[in-house]
Amino acid sequence: MAAVSLLAAPAAGAEGDPSVLQASNGYHLSGDWDGDGVDTPGVFRPGSPNTYYLRNSNSSGVADITVSFGGGGSVFPIVGDWDGDGDDTIGLVAFGSPNRYFLRNSNTSGVADITVTYGSYGYPLIGDWDGDGDDTIGLVAFGSPNTYYLRNSNTSGAANITLNYGGEGFPIAGDWDADGDDTVGLVRFDANGVVDNRWFLRNTNSSGIADVTFDYGRGGLEVIGDWDNTGDDNPGLVYPGQPNWWDLRNSNTTGPADTSFTYGS
């Protein structure tokens, strides 16, 4: 199945406003850019035009793919396998009432292959919610609890799945149990960076408590992916710098990073 890929680089106090969830050196992404079953890093820098820098291995080096797509305004990068062909490709969300999604089926410059309106503001979340092989749109409204609105096609309409899950923290999604569909999760960072991050993963898109809870990393910015081509998605962290430092773990358990490297700056 396609890998789920999304990262917002959170600014302090900006949890409810994804238009400002951006690090000074860009957004960090992950995706299976070449369809080999392994998710690898990417960096998105907004501008006129926006530029994506995508790498096909979890190692230090330069981008294998550099592509421009869209530009200007308040946008948020997303990636997913929009057409079910096995590789992840680029997209953008322009926030408003409604939000507008611009999805491209290849990692090349050009116009959107799919344009769709869905929801208003909120936090974009992408996944294969029904296990059919293509990634589709979703949105999280922050609250106590958070409310997830997930749609099974990249078309306008009402949510196919609505659920409540978690509260304070950052929403994530992935195939935590390798069953072919993506489900919700949450990562909670300590504001002072003195205790480990705590990850709360749920194996169904339904309200309830976490099926898997573990601590991993301290501080950083979350990325999710199947780093070792085993079919399940696992945690990763990016520590922004000159260059950025990536720590990826191959299981949803407490422990050190299995893979570490620098990429982007």
Rank of each mutant, 00 (worst) to 15 (best):
71 G>L: 10
91 G>L: 12
123 Y>V: 15
113 D>R: 11
87 D>W: 05
80 G>P: 14
49 P>T: 07
169 G>I: 03
142 F>H: 09
140 V>H: 08
84 G>R: 10
88 D>C: 14
128 D>P: 07
128 D>Y: 00
169 G>Y: 01
54 L>S: 11
92 L>V: 06
60 S>P: 02
153 S>F: 02
80 G>M: 07
132 D>K: 13
129 W>A: 03
68 S>F: 00
42 G>T: 12
152 N>E: 00
90 I>E: 07
163 L>A: 07
103 L>R: 13
118 Y>V: 10
124 P>F: 08
129 W>F: 01
99 N>L: 01
169 G>Q: 02
94 A>L: 03
164 N>K: 11
56 N>Y: 11
90 I>N: 10
87 D>N: 15
100 R>D: 06
41 P>F: 08
44 F>M: 12
91 G>Q: 10
160 N>R: 02
136 T>F: 06
61 G>I: 10
147 T>L: 04
149 Y>A: 05
162 T>H: 03
122 G>P: 14
61 G>K: 13
119 G>H: 09
57 S>D: 13
125 L>R: 10
81 D>L: 08
164 N>R: 10
135 D>M: 07
53 Y>H: 12
38 V>R: 15
125 L>T: 14
45 R>Q: 13
43 V>W: 00
41 P>Y: 07
154 N>M: 08
75 V>I: 14
95 F>P: 11
43 V>C: 05
67 V>Y: 00
133 G>Q: 07
90 I>Y: 11
53 Y>C: 00
166 G>Q: 03
152 N>P: 03
142 F>T: 08
156 S>R: 02
92 L>H: 05
143 G>D: 01
138 G>L: 05
98 P>A: 01
129 W>E: 04
78 I>Y: 04
35 G>Y: 03
95 F>K: 02
138 G>F: 04
146 N>W: 03
74 S>V: 15
168 E>H: 12
56 N>R: 14
33 W>I: 10
41 P>W: 06
59 S>L: 13
150 L>P: 01
38 V>I: 15
93 V>E: 04
52 Y>M: 02
116 V>D: 00
154 N>G: 05
165 Y>E: 00
106 S>E: 06
37 G>S: 12
49 P>I: 06
90 I>V: 15
138 G>H: 10
135 D>T: 12
78 I>F: 08
104 R>N: 12
107 N>R: 02
100 R>K: 15
52 Y>T: 00
39 D>V: 14
119 G>Y: 09
156 S>W: 01
89 T>K: 15
64 D>G: 06
68 S>H: 05
85 D>T: 12
153 S>Y: 01
109 S>V: 05
82 W>D: 10
129 W>P: 01
101 Y>N: 12
152 N>Q: 06
72 G>A: 09
154 N>S: 09
151 R>W: 01
130 D>M: 02
152 N>M: 05
79 V>Q: 11
78 I>K: 06
159 A>T: 06
91 G>R: 13
127 G>A: 05
126 I>P: 01
73 G>D: 06
119 G>T: 12
131 G>M: 07
98 P>M: 01
